[in-house]
Nucleic acid binder design. Sequence first.
DNA 1: ACCGCCATTGACCAAATTGGTCAACACCCC
DNA 2: GGGGTGTTGACCAATTTGGTCAATGGCGGT
Lengths: 206, 206
Amino acid sequence: MNEKFFSLPQARQDLIRNSAMLEFGEGSFKKTSADAIAKRAGVSKGLLFHYFKDKRELYLYLFQYALEVCVRQYMVKTYDFGETDFFLALKMGQEIKMDMVRRYPGLFRFVMRAYYERDSVLSPKLRKGLNSLLEITSRDFLTRMDLYKFKDGIDPWEVIRLLTLAAEGMMARTNACTAEEIETLFLEYQKYADMLRQNLYKEEYL
Amino acid sequence: MNEKFFSLPQARQDLIRNSAMLEFGEGSFKKTSADAIAKRAGVSKGLLFHYFKDKRELYLYLFQYALEVCVRQYMVKTYDFGETDFFLALKMGQEIKMDMVRRYPGLFRFVMRAYYERDSVLSPKLRKGLNSLLEITSRDFLTRMDLYKFKDGIDPWEVIRLLTLAAEGMMARTNACTAEEIETLFLEYQKYADMLRQNLYKEEYL
DNA sequence: ACCGCCATTGACCAAATTGGTCAACACCCC
DNA sequence: GGGGTGTTGACCAATTTGGTCAATGGCGGT
């Protein structure tokens, strides 16, 4: 790709990346047209191919970029901050996610779709990158938490997965989604987390 | 549409409908090509346009058909059977859903996508049909359940929505999904429901 | 064996869309 | 005015699009 892309002002880079991720996010690689991306960004198609030699190259770059963003966010914000309460940490994590959605609206959907893409536009190596990222965040997360606060017989893995699935279910609905609606969803999610906390923690930790 | 379609053997009707729903389910109306549908069904494009004059007509028919299926299933299986325990009824409902997924693999995704389609291919009337269906199933459901079994302070709406979202989160992942994988997901869902039951019901009802 | 019927095909069409190119433009700093 | 540089919009050949249609194949009846 053309390295000059990076000397563009950040806002413009974001504009292009976000438009591309949003567009790729709603269809397969093949079905997503460069034209649509350009139009969404309010930019000529010529410009796109000026910075990225290929649709494929653009796609690959986006994926790598998205992973970088995820890792960066995870690293600086979650790992350093030593919260050990399951639900508080979860809440923090969710807040980070919301920040990301605000700034890169198409990122999660794009990554999801990229992961499940049948056409092998993604090398196995990149796919693995995502896998390890997911694994690290989850496993690592649980080992740092105060799991003793849970009632006996509760499997924290189930809790985390249930909440994750619910979050994904929400995500699936955020096709046309304003900023406020996202905020609402976040609050709703928080309600469910609280409900679980109230009922899955031992009483002495409430 | 050509009414002769209905004198085709059921298996063939299902083949065509399912292929179409699957194909429409993975992209917008515009991006989904009649060619792809025909190919997936192993049928010539000519045949498609022999029974449905339009891509649009096919789409509209599918939506109406899907809603019919949902209503029928809901009516005969849930409503008549007078289960009043929240989690048991929920389990039953989920089993019905699984049956539907087995028989009409693309149905739910298709309906979802159709609902969120920006292009107004769906008349507001049809959209309303789905809305009322969702409303009826949920509201109606709760009024028939033994809500007193829940611990004080638990809002059953939250419970049902949490589980519904989780189910949708799963659905979102079932792009490439074999029959057994679906079974696995169902079992997983059941685990979460059980966990909630164990901790949200008053002890005397466990 | 012949018929008529009907589901089904595959070649075909004009029109739109595709990924990608390129000469030219507008702007800004020297 | 002269160079960069970011940007455009017209342009291209190739493919894909929704949709048509004459022809075919097979099957049931007689």
